[in-house]
Every structure is written in C-alpha cells, then in structure tokens.
Amino acid sequence: PEEVRRLVEELYRKGVSPEQVKKILKKQGIDEREIEKVLRRIG
C-alpha cells in the first residue's frame, strides 16, 4: 500500500538500515511482507 511505501522511503532516506526499517514498522503492526516488497523495489 501507498502508506507503507511512504513510511519505508522516509526511514530509508534518513539512513535507517533495511533491518531497522523492518523492525520499526513491524512494531507499528505493518505486515513484514509488505515492508520487504517495498525495500526490494527501493534497494
């Protein structure tokens, strides 16, 4: 979803590592598979 992409990109631009991005967003209840999809697209 758009909102997940925005959150991931925001953290990524701040220099947060992909592993940390995953941890942070998982705590917020976001599906890990969604996060990984976005990270793959960015990375």
Results as ranks from 00 to 15, higher is better:
residue 14 K to H: 11
residue 28 Q to H: 08
residue 29 G to Y: 02
residue 40 R to G: 15
residue 36 E to S: 02
residue 7 L to G: 01
residue 41 R to P: 13
residue 18 P to S: 10
residue 16 V to K: 11
residue 35 I to L: 06
residue 21 V to Q: 01
residue 43 G to A: 15
residue 16 V to P: 00
residue 9 E to T: 06
residue 43 G to Q: 12
residue 4 V to W: 07
residue 36 E to C: 04
residue 9 E to H: 05
residue 23 K to Y: 06
residue 3 E to F: 09
residue 29 G to T: 01
residue 41 R to D: 15
residue 34 E to G: 02
residue 40 R to T: 13
residue 2 E to S: 11
residue 40 R to W: 03
residue 39 L to E: 04
residue 19 E to N: 09
residue 32 E to S: 07
residue 42 I to R: 05
residue 31 D to H: 06
residue 17 S to T: 12
residue 42 I to G: 05
residue 26 K to V: 15
residue 26 K to S: 14
residue 3 E to V: 10
residue 14 K to S: 12
residue 5 R to V: 13
residue 17 S to W: 05
residue 19 E to C: 13
residue 8 V to F: 03
residue 16 V to R: 07
residue 19 E to M: 07
residue 27 K to F: 09
residue 33 R to N: 13
residue 7 L to Y: 05
residue 17 S to R: 10
residue 10 E to F: 06
residue 8 V to R: 00
residue 11 L to G: 00
residue 15 G to F: 02
residue 41 R to L: 15
residue 3 E to T: 10
residue 14 K to D: 11
residue 35 I to N: 00
residue 11 L to H: 15
residue 34 E to Y: 05
residue 14 K to V: 08
residue 13 R to V: 10
residue 21 V to P: 00
residue 23 K to G: 12
residue 34 E to W: 06
residue 26 K to A: 14
residue 10 E to P: 02
residue 6 R to C: 04
residue 30 I to W: 12
residue 3 E to W: 10
residue 11 L to Y: 07
residue 23 K to Q: 14
residue 29 G to L: 04
residue 41 R to H: 15
residue 6 R to A: 11
residue 37 K to W: 01
residue 14 K to E: 13
residue 5 R to Y: 13
residue 29 G to N: 06
residue 31 D to I: 02
residue 12 Y to G: 05
residue 24 I to N: 04
residue 24 I to T: 07
residue 30 I to Y: 14
residue 30 I to D: 00
residue 8 V to M: 03
residue 27 K to Q: 14
residue 33 R to Y: 06
residue 31 D to F: 02
residue 28 Q to W: 08
residue 27 K to T: 12
residue 7 L to S: 04
residue 17 S to E: 11
residue 38 V to R: 02
residue 11 L to F: 06
residue 2 E to Q: 11
residue 14 K to A: 14
residue 27 K to L: 13
residue 38 V to C: 04
residue 40 R to M: 08
residue 31 D to V: 04
residue 26 K to W: 04
residue 3 E to P: 07
residue 10 E to W: 06
residue 33 R to C: 05
residue 40 R to K: 13
residue 23 K to T: 14
residue 36 E to Y: 01
residue 33 R to L: 12
residue 22 K to W: 05
residue 18 P to K: 11
residue 27 K to V: 11
residue 36 E to M: 02
residue 39 L to R: 02
residue 12 Y to V: 15
residue 6 R to H: 09
residue 6 R to N: 07
residue 24 I to K: 06
residue 4 V to M: 09
residue 39 L to V: 12
residue 15 G to T: 01
residue 25 L to T: 00
residue 36 E to D: 14
residue 24 I to L: 09
residue 19 E to D: 15
residue 24 I to F: 05
residue 17 S to Q: 11
residue 15 G to V: 01
residue 38 V to L: 10
residue 14 K to Q: 13
residue 4 V to K: 01
residue 43 G to V: 15
residue 38 V to P: 00
residue 12 Y to H: 12
residue 32 E to W: 04
residue 38 V to I: 14
